[in-house]
Simulated scan of single mutants.
Amino acid sequence: MKVSSSSFIFRFVVLHLLTLSAIVSAQQPSDSCSSTLPLNDLSFNASLLQCAEVWSLQNYILRYSRTDANTWSFVLSAPDSNSFIAIGFSTNGQMIGSSAVVGWIPSGGRGEVKQYFLGGKTPDQVVVDQGELTIVNGSMKIESVSSRLYLSFQLTTAEQPRTQVLYALGRAGAFPSSPDYSLTEHRTMISTSLNYITAVQRVVKAKPHSRLRKTHGLLNMFGWGIFIVIGSLVARHLKRWDPMWFYAHTALQTTGFLLGLTGVICGLVLENRTKASTVSTHKGLGITILVMGCLQVMALLARPDKQSKYRRYWNWYHHNVGRILIILAIANVFYGIHLGKAGSAWNGGYGFVVAVLFLVAVGLEVRKFMQK
């Protein structure tokens, strides 16, 4: 009886140790930089590939190497979570403007790999079979091995590929499909900077100075592009309510000037921090608008009496400088949206406001003409 009990305890311990070992083994990733790449039909020598664990949270592993004079080979390994996996190459670490290789294997379906140009955040700006990557014909493949996806491709480039590398994981069950292969929004992503020589990568934080950039845009948009416009409409069409129109006009123009002045200061600080070299025209227009705004404030302080013989010259100057300021301000707001790659939402939103103000101005002009 004692022997039987000891045998039972021994078997019980052995069984639990085996179970625990199985659990630990299951928790270990099935692929790592120390394991052999389980692919046999690659068109390049896999033994030359360097390896980097690029996204530990999602267990993404990137193998790469310069396998020919002008050819770089890549293999991205990731768990098969019934979603697409993607790798993108960017000039500034941001998704917008980058080119990406995206691969997926639907359940019971055939694997697909496509290149996409990420021109914006909306689906119509993510264009399939477009991008700045020169991919070797027939090199894009995706395989599923031991519950992992292996996305492989080759790039033709005379220099080193872009070091700003993005990785994305799609939503479960959401795959692009023919005929348009529209790419759905990713579930999560990460932006990294990869050193191709040392295989060391670091995570790139969110877009630097994004809050300052947004503040700069909003202040100028509301200041020069909305308040100043509304103030000019008040001065032109509401003079029957004297002197309330003057107080409203002054309040709106002062608010617009102060907002715009703060926005220009934010823009100068932003340029100094980012060392941007493509904003000279935008900056020049902004300073011109600010100078014209200062001249308008000075003109208000030097406004002659209604009975003065100089009043009509003052009116001509004040009205026409104001019109030129408004035109330049609206144009520069749209130009700033373009430079900041803010997307169609900003263009559409401000365009709608400008359209409404324009229709109101036209309606008031027609009303004024009919009254005459």
Rank of each mutant, 00 (worst) to 15 (best):
I9V: 15
V13M: 09
S25H: 11
Q27F: 13
Q28F: 10
C33G: 06
C33N: 09
S35D: 09
L37D: 05
P38K: 03
L39I: 14
D41G: 01
L49N: 01
Q50G: 03
V54R: 00
L57I: 14
Q58V: 08
Y60N: 03
I61L: 15
T71N: 02
T71S: 03
V75Y: 01
L76Y: 02
P79F: 04
D80S: 04
D80A: 07
S81K: 04
F84I: 05
I85N: 02
G88Y: 05
G88D: 05
F89L: 11
G93D: 05
I96C: 00
V101N: 08
G103K: 13
G108V: 15
R110V: 15
E112P: 00
Y116N: 07
G119C: 03
K121Q: 10
T122A: 04
Q125R: 07
V126Y: 04
V127N: 04
V127E: 09
V128F: 09
G131R: 01
E132I: 12
T134Q: 10
N137D: 15
G138E: 09
S139G: 07
S144R: 15
L149N: 09
L151R: 01
F153V: 15
T156S: 12
R162C: 04
R162S: 07
Q164M: 05
Q164S: 08
Y167E: 03
R171Y: 09
P176H: 10
S177C: 03
P179T: 12
Y181A: 09
S182F: 06
L183V: 01
R187I: 09
T188K: 07
T192C: 01
S193L: 15
L194I: 15
N195V: 13
Y196M: 13
V200T: 12
V200D: 08
K205A: 12
A206M: 06
K207S: 09
P208S: 08
S210Y: 05
L212M: 11
R213G: 05
H216P: 01
H216Y: 06
L219E: 06
M221K: 00
M221I: 11
M221C: 06
G223F: 08
G225K: 10
F227P: 02
G231P: 05
K239V: 15
M244S: 10
A251R: 01
A251P: 00
T254V: 13
T255I: 13
T255H: 00
F257S: 08
L258Q: 00
G260M: 06
V264D: 07
V264Q: 06
C266L: 11
N272K: 11
R273Q: 15
R273F: 14
S277K: 14
T278K: 13
T278P: 00
T281S: 08
T281H: 07
T281F: 12
H282Y: 07
G284I: 14
I287C: 05
L290E: 11
C294A: 07
C294Y: 03
L295K: 02
Q296A: 04
A299L: 13
L300K: 02
R303P: 02
R303S: 02
Q307M: 10
K309Y: 05
R311W: 11
Y313I: 15
V321C: 08
G322M: 10
I327M: 08
L328M: 13
F334C: 01
Y335S: 02
A342N: 00
W346M: 03
N347W: 04
G351N: 02
F352C: 11
V362C: 03
V366F: 06
M370H: 06
Q371T: 13
